[in-house]
């Protein structure tokens, strides 16, 4: 089949030639796809604003020789609550950048599409701190991609002693006092931060509102995940500089 139908979320767009754009989309069926939207920059383009970033849509895409071509796009949700709020735009961009940088092209994971759609839907409607939404998305994304730091037990000996909690980026999780290798960088992580990480990981976005969240714990958890991403995936988010 040269054409395929899929749901997708627009991650990024880049001008191409006179009036076209290359749109990067995370699709449910084909994973991360870069496809051309022909004539989209013309005022009377049939795509209109349907292929703006953050938009969740139903797509028909034609498989091209080098790049795919978008032939049809119908909006599921343009996420107006995000695009009309400067603060939410910045947090939303950080989510999109996380997907761009962690999802390899040609690898399909419908769970990642569903996670991004749920996170954007929630950010679109909620009044809670956008930082908490981003950190929830981040930790769930790491779980899906298999890079979640082990925050339950000491990764070396399996000890559950919470009084000696130190996070070691090199070991990929918590290490207890006895197993800490000298010379390795470690950070102290307070127990409420670990508790928050577990709560956010196992709750649906709609349930996050009920979780008691302290701003300082969110900041601390975001910092831990930032170190983890930088160490294990060599990812530094450019959009992070725009948060708050």
């Amino acid at each position: 089949m040269r054409n395929y139908k899929t749901k997708g979320i627009v991650l990024k767009s880049m001008n191409l030639g006179e009036a076209d754009r290359i749109i990067t989309i995370y699709t449910e069926r084909e994973g991360k796809v870069a496809a051309v939207a022909k004539g989209i920059r013309r005022t009377k383009s049939r795509f209109g604003a349907r292929l703006e970033v953050f938009t969740d849509l139903n797509l028909i895409i034609h498989r091209g020789k080098s790049l795919d071509i978008i032939t049809n796009a119908n909006t599921i949700d343009p996420h107006l609550g995000i695009v009309s709020n400067l603060d939410k735009i910045n947090y939303g961009y950080a989510m999109l950048e996380l997907v761009i940088k962690t999802a390899p092209e040609g690898q399909t994971d419908a769970r990642l599409y569903q996670l991004l759609a749920a996170a954007l839907d929630y950010l679109n409607k909620t009044d809670i701190d956008s930082g908490a939404v981003l950190v929830t998305f981040n930790i769930k994304l790491l779980a899906i991609t298999g890079f979640l730091p082990n925050l339950s037990v000491c990764v070396v000996c399996g000890d559950k002693d919470k009084r000696t909690v130190k996070y070691s980026p090199a070991d990929g999780g918590m290490v207890c006092g006895g197993c800490r290798a000298s010379g390795r960088e470690v950070f102290t992580v307070k127990e409420p931060v670990i508790l928050l990480a577990h709560r956010l990981l196992y709750k649906h976005f709609v349930e996050v509102e009920a979780v008691p969240i302290e701003k300082r714990d969110v900041v601390e958890l975001a910092r831990l995940l930032r170190f983890h991403l930088a160490y294990h995936l060599n990812i530094k988010l450019k959009s992070e500089a725009f948060l708050e």
Binding site: R46, G48, A49, R50, T55, T75
Partner: peptide, 9 residues
């Protein structure tokens, strides 16, 4: 008829 939701909003 052909306008998208964002443009129409």
């Amino acid at each position: 008829e052909y306008a998208d939701e964002l443009t129409l909003s």
